[in-house]
């Protein structure tokens, strides 16, 4: 059988062969994949990608917040080196991250292991651990402010018998950041617990049973069976926690509601500092430059972590 192309050139095809399918399975799957991703992709482009591009553009200007833009090249980036308050905020964020990420992970993992197996009321327990995460962070902040208030708060009142009734958890610079870390962990532990629980549920029971038959105890079972197989999930939780501790809601909302960066700048995180540059000092150009550097740092850090750990699989070939 012969077909004639538009040009009139005859193209021969082996007799009996079917025409090449335009919509072969691979293409159909690809299209379906793009269709599934499209809503998220559009949202990302609109609410993440576009602001990032805008921030890079604005960072090259002196933007006074009243419509005045003056091109200043890289001056806003050069300003960072001599900005002592910025570095103080970096120290705050690094300290917060160094405390929040490992402690938060261990707590979440502990909870996930606790509610992994079935016991009466396990659903309720899981729900109770997750409940803090469904509350608005602003409400969380107000509630904890109430609980921690000097002298009359529930926490100082409970601690009075042990001589800590006069402790100011949010007003003492040596305690305020620690209090924010504790509240952040309380807020996020249920969410991370749920993700780790998903990872734990994916580990076949047979592996643990085999280890038990070989005489492995609880710790050996965790160390040699659960932990290696949980690495990809753990990696996701850790990356998420690092990014969240630098730019997440808890790094701004809690600071804004509870301390306003105080006392004495002890909780002024980098994102709160950026906010102040934009909305207190009207220095939108500098704020945009800071944002660009923070995002760039996080992208580089995440890419490095992905590279070093092979996307959290560690030992994948």
């Amino acid at each position: 059988m012969a077909t004639v192309a538009d040009s009139g050139t005859a193209v021969r095809r082996p007799s009996g062969a079917a025409p090449p399918p335009v919509w072969n399975r691979r293409r159909r799957e690809a299209l379906a994949g793009y269709a599934f991703v499209a809503p998220d992709l559009l949202g990302l482009m609109m609410f993440v990608g576009l602001p990032m591009v805008l921030a890079i553009g604005v960072s090259l200007f002196n933007a006074d917040g009243f419509g005045g833009y003056t091109y200043v090249g890289l001056d806003n980036f050069r300003q960072m080196a001599g900005d002592t308050q910025l570095w103080q905020s970096v120290r705050v964020t690094v300290t917060y991250t160094a405390a929040f990420v490992p402690i938060g992970f261990v707590v979440s993992l502990g909870l996930a292991l606790l509610v992994r197996d079935h016991f009466p009321g396990v659903g309720l327990v899981r729900t109770l651990f997750f409940v803090p995460h469904v509350i608005s962070l602003v409400v969380v902040g107000i509630a904890w402010q109430f609980l921690l208030v000097d002298k009359q708060g529930a926490v100082p009142t409970l601690l009075r018998p042990v001589g800590l009734g006069d402790t100011s958890f949010l007003g003492d610079p040596s305690l305020a950041l620690g209090s924010l870390v504790a509240i952040s962990i309380w807020f996020l532990m249920g969410y991370n617990m749920l993700i780790l629980l998903g990872g734990l549920k994916d580990i076949p029971k047979e592996y643990e049973e085999a280890a038990a038959i070989d005489g492995a105890g609880a710790w050996q079972n965790f160390r040699h069976v659960i932990w290696p197989l949980l690495r990809p999930t753990s990696f996701f939780v850790l990356v998420n926690s690092v990014v969240g501790s630098v730019t997440g809601l808890q790094a701004f909302d809690l600071v804004y509601v509870l301390t306003q960066g105080g006392p004495a700048g002890s909780t002024s995180s980098v994102v709160f500092y950026i906010y102040q540059q934009a909305f207190t000092f009207n220095d939108h150009g500098y704020a945009a430059a800071l944002t660009t550097v923070v995002v760039g740092f996080l992208v580089a850090a995440t890419a490095t972590m992905f590279g070093l750990t092979k996307g959290g699989r560690f030992d994948a070939g």
């Binding site: 308050q85 007003g171 003492d172 610079p173 105080g262 006392p263 004495a264 700048g265 002890s266 102040q276 207190t280 000092f281 009207n282």
Partner: peptide, 18 residues
């Protein structure tokens, strides 16, 4: 805002930061 912030930092550093 620049003057206000410098004053604010001094108040905070002494009052609460010791």
């Amino acid at each position: 805002p620049e003057v206000y912030k410098a004053v604010s930092d001094a108040i905070q550093a002494t009052q609460l930061g010791g």
